[in-house]
Structures are given as structure tokens and as C-alpha cells.
Design a protein around this nucleic acid. Structure first.
Lengths: 253, 253
DNA sequence: ATTTTAAGTATCACTATTTGATACTAAGAG
DNA sequence: CTCTTAGTATCAAATAGTGATACTTAAAAT
């Protein structure tokens, strides 16, 4: 049913949410005019929504510049999310153990639509900011995590996702050939892990293994991010993979 | 101006936000009836808000149990917050360095109203879940972070906060005597750091130093969480404090 | 197994909230 | 200094959202 014909749909609330979604990594503070431009909403509607979000504590407002910015309430929502997702509490101790043992950045990635979303990050190296903070979404097909999760899915479901899900070029070396990506997923299916390099960040080796519970196809993976300058792939397989497999097995096993 | 007399205030949006705020560490999934109870809103209003939040991707809905739960979108908001707060990008490399050097849990805490909010956490030890995830708010007066931040404020402002801000009993040993808390803040002012133990968690030593920029009074602190079983206070001061001071100094210096 | 109660869903008449337009003010650009 | 843009405040109109309620489904009690 079209939203506008859905009598339960509250368009005013939806507009308020549009304001929140206008902020991202490239829009860290926004004026009313910029919010109008980014949401397409009418100017007085934006004025009312922003004003209300500010009063309700969702947006901070700089009195001098009159620009809005996300408030601490956005992290409070993350806190509530963390409690609500049982995988988080199960994974965190395992990621901490891994981090202590290996001294490398380790993440929990989860399928989110046709992307993967990083829900936990334990950074160990100074790297790109976007690779150190939670909440980032990346096309699943472009990541070791996405591929290794999909490797656990039924053939039909995996092939359809492989054929239709979006791709994004992260580096000049990002693989965009769907046949080759499919091959990589099939290899991951055989190996039980997926290793990629230079896909989202140059000189990044990414190793992922699926988090498998009793109910079959994975929806999450644990993933290590390593410097391609400090490691080669053979070393990663020999030294890091066994520990990562152990970590993943301990989450839902 | 009372909200209801504020012609720019959008009560429908505010109701939607009330639904979001109903989820917390004790309410990880909620039925419609529970949302009604927790928000005080009328049942059909809750039905419409929850329905719209679900369609807009803010809430997941279990088709079997018909319960709602926070979605990945809540972490996406955290991602946007992280980009918008310049302190995060400045602090993260320093916290990573500290974490690698000391192997202990280190956090970034920020003043948020009359509480402190943990905006970054680099866990190193397996500890209580709520002490390992971002977004938690704790009364500022009850924490080493809050006290050491307030120690940098003008006398009047610090004394007023000390007299009026809320307290919460975290352990049987939590200090609730405002005079003694004031003494602790004054000691922190002299020492340049604040050390507490057993305030929010038993057997936890908490050491905090303020993050001071060019514009005077601090709004943030870096804080280490250590086991009181493994360390005594003298060791913490001798071994950990110098590194922590160095980390804090490197953030805005 | 049956009955009762509670929760969820769908619909409705009504009105108050929200809308988009616009006048006015303030700030920024030229 | 003038013009343009952005922000603010107000308004009449209308429609979106309201709270009540009937109906359906699920859970709890007997």
C-alpha cells in the first residue's frame, strides 16, 4: 500500500525523521536553508521540525550561527540499540579477547538490507576515521564480511543477492565484476572465511568469518582489519585466521 | 514558553520521539500495549507512531510476537553524531595509543546536562556490559570524569552544580555526601586528576583527567577504568596517570 | 476445552494541528 | 549602501491526526 493511502502512516513524524537523516559524514552541521535543500520539505515545515527536534533534545543549536547539529541523544539511542541486540553482548567479550591476543582492529558486521553495518568496532591501529567508528554501512558485496555471510546462505538466495545488490567503488582496486565476486563467495563457502584486500581502503587486508548460530544462515561476521604493509595474506591465514575462527565460534556456539 | 503555546512546536513529532525513548537497557523490545503504558499516549496514537517508525526503518517488528525493537538505524545516527562532534576525531587516536600502551579500558566522557555521557569506549577487559558500550549517561557528581571536568569550572558554577545536580547510588560505597564530593572536586582541582573507587561498580578504580582546550573550562575528560583487584591507587597514580595526562594533553593541545 | 480478558487492528467523525504562503526582520554578499 | 538570502513569525485553510470504538485475534483463566 502506498504510504499516502496508509491511514496509519503519520507523515508529520516521517518528515521529522527526514530532518535527522539529513546529517551524515559530509553534513555535520546544517542551517535551516541547507535542511530545506537536503530534504525538499517546505521552509516553514523545516523550521517547525528543527525547532521541535531541538526542544526535544535531538538537535543542538548554535545560537551564533543558527546551525543545527546532532546531540548526545543520538548516542543514547545507540546505547538502547546495544541492549536490544543480543548478539552485541555475546560478541563483545570475544572481540575483546581477540583484540588483546592479536593487537589488531576487530569488528562485528551485520547484514542490514543489502549492506553490511559495523555494529561493534575495537580499533587497535590508527586508521581512517570512518573505519574506526560504529554505524557505517557499506554495500555487502564489496566487503569480506558481506561475502562470508552470504556464503552461508542457500544457493538461490546468495545468487540473487549477488546479481542484484548494489556495488560501490571504494578504491581503484575495488572488484566490481559480479562473476568474480560470486567466485569469491563460493571460495569463501569452501574455505569458511573470506579475505580481501584494497577493497574499501588501500593497503587494507580484510579477513572475515561468519557468526553462525543454531539456526543456519549467518546474518553477522567478525572481521579483522590489517595493514597490507605489515602483513601478507599467507601470514594472515596462518596467524590470524585460527584465532578469529575461535572468536566467532565462541559467540553463538 | 510552554510547549503547547509554542506555535512552532510539532506535538506529533514529539510523540514519535517519545516512542523511541521508551526503549532503554531494561526495555529492549516492547509491544504496543507496553508502549502505551510507558509513554502514556493513547493506544491508536501509539499504533500509528510505531507503524510509521517501522515503515521508516527506525524500529524492527517481529511478525510473530508483534514486538518492536530498535533497528540498525539507531547506530547510523551514532555514526552521524561521531562525524559531527570534532572532539571524537581528535580523541580517538589518543585513546587508541593509550589503549595499546597500557592495555586498559579507556573512555571519553562528556558533560551532557547534569550527567556525563560516555561517547567513546575502548574496552580492554571483560567487564560489565553497561561499562563497555557507548551512550551511557551517569550523574556527573558520581563520577571521576564529572568531578574532574567540574574542577576546571569557575568556582561559582562548580559550587552551584555541586549543590543542585542529581546523585545516584551505584554501589553501597557510592559517595552521596555533597560536602565530601565538593572536597573531592577541590582536590581534583589541585591535583589535575580525579581518582575514585567503587562508585559506579564495585572493585572499579576510575581515574579521569580533563580535556582542556584553549577556551578554558573543560566539557570532556578521558577516563581509565581499572580493576581494584589488580591495582592499588598508588600504582595507578605512578604508572597510569602520566600516560593519561599525556593522552588528554594531546587531544586539544 | 471453553470462556473471559487483553492486545492488536481497522475504521470513523471531528477538530486541532499542521500546512504552505507570506510579511517582516536580520544577516550576509556584492 | 544596496540587494539578496536566510531566518522568523503569523495567518487562514484544510487535512492529518486524534481519541473513541467496533471488531478480530491471542493469551490467560477457569
Amino acid at each position: 500500500m502506498e504510504k499516502k493511502q496508509d491511514s496509519l502512516y503519520v507523515s508529520t513524524l516521517a518528515r521529522g525523521l527526514q530532518i535527522l537523516r539529513a546529517f551524515d559524514e559530509s553534513h555535520i552541521s546544517l542551517s535551516l536553508a541547507e535542511l530545506v535543500a537536503r530534504t525538499g520539505l517546505e521552509r516553514s515545515a523545516v523550521q517547525r521540525m528543527a525547532h521541535t527536534l531541538h526542544l526535544e533534545g535531538m538537535l543542538d543549536r548554535d545560537e551564533k550561527t543558527r546551525r543545527f547539529r546532532p546531540s548526545h541523544a543520538w548516542l543514547e539511542l545507540a546505547y538502547a540499540y546495544y541492549w536490544s541486540d543480543p548478539l552485541i553482548a555475546r560478541a563483545l567479550p570475544k572481540l575483546i579477547e581477540f583484540s588483546r591476543a592479536m593487537g589488531e582492529t576487530v569488528n562485528l558486521a551485520q547484514i542490514s538490507g543489502d549492506h553490511i553495518l559495523y555494529s561493534l568496532r575495537l580499533p587497535n591501529q590508527r586508521t581512517h576515521f570512518e573505519a574506526s567508528i560504529v554505524g557505517r554501512r557499506v554495500p555487502a558485496l564489496n566487503t569480506a564480511s558481506g561475502r562470508v555471510i552470504m556464503a552461508t546462505w542457500p544457493e538461490h538466495e546468495m545468487r540473487e543477492a549477488c546479481a542484484t545488490w548494489p556495488l560501490r567503488q571504494g578504491t581503484p582496486k575495488t572488484l566490481l565484476d559480479r562473476d568474480k565476486i560470486l567466485q569469491g563467495i563460493e571460495t569463501a563457502r569452501e574455505d569458511g572465511y573470506c579475505l580481501t584486500r584494497d577493497q574499501m581502503l588501500l593497503n587494507e587486508i580484510s579477513l572475515a568469518v561468519p557468526v553462525i548460530g543454531k539456526d543456519g544462515p549467518a546474518q553477522a561476521a567478525v572481521q579483522v582489519s590489517l595493514s597490507g604493509v605489515s602483513f601478507d595474506e599467507e601470514q594472515v591465514i596462518r596467524k590470524v585466521l585460527p584465532v578469529l575462527l575461535d572468536s566467532a565460534a565462541g559467540i553463538l556456539g
